[in-house]
Amino acid sequence: MRKLLLALTLLMPPAALAVAPGALAPDVKAPQLRQPGQVLALKSLRGNVVYVDFWASWCVPCRLSMPTLDTLYRKYGERGFRVVGVNKDVAGDDIDRFLNRVNVTFILLADKDDAIAKAFDVQAMPSGYLVDRKGIVRFVHHGFTELTARDLAKEIEGLLKDPA
């Protein structure tokens, strides 16, 4: 009986650990959406303040978050702020349709095998992880509203003041 219960317990899927503030950002790499053949490693952006955003065309709040993040990127980019948008669509046509309406200038990554989403253990769409210059996740945002945008601007400004 005990052996059976142990076997059942082992059959249960392991609980992933969500990336929380204070944790080191997962060292992930993925192909870029707009530069076919080019792979970006998150670690290569070390020294910048990076916002890793999980988005999809079917995610309603992403219609607000994507242009807002682009505005923040244009505003703080010169001071070392980068945005990495990790796409979670299942069809390429949906991505193109969305980007035709909401054009963004920051880096976009594909995540077809869910490797990045699993590494961060994404709990909601959209989810954003603000990483400091040393690669430590400092703030996590689930969902996106105008309040998130306001908080994010303050957080970015604070982190940009920290030296690399």
Partner: peptide, 21 residues
């Protein structure tokens, strides 16, 4: 134990938020 085994064999699964396309 048989009931627990049957429950474990269920085809139900949780769909992650990022897989809801």
């Amino acid at each position: 134990a048989a009931l627990a085994l049957l429950a474990a064999l269920s085809a139900c699964t949780t769909v992650a938020p990022y897989q809801r396309g």
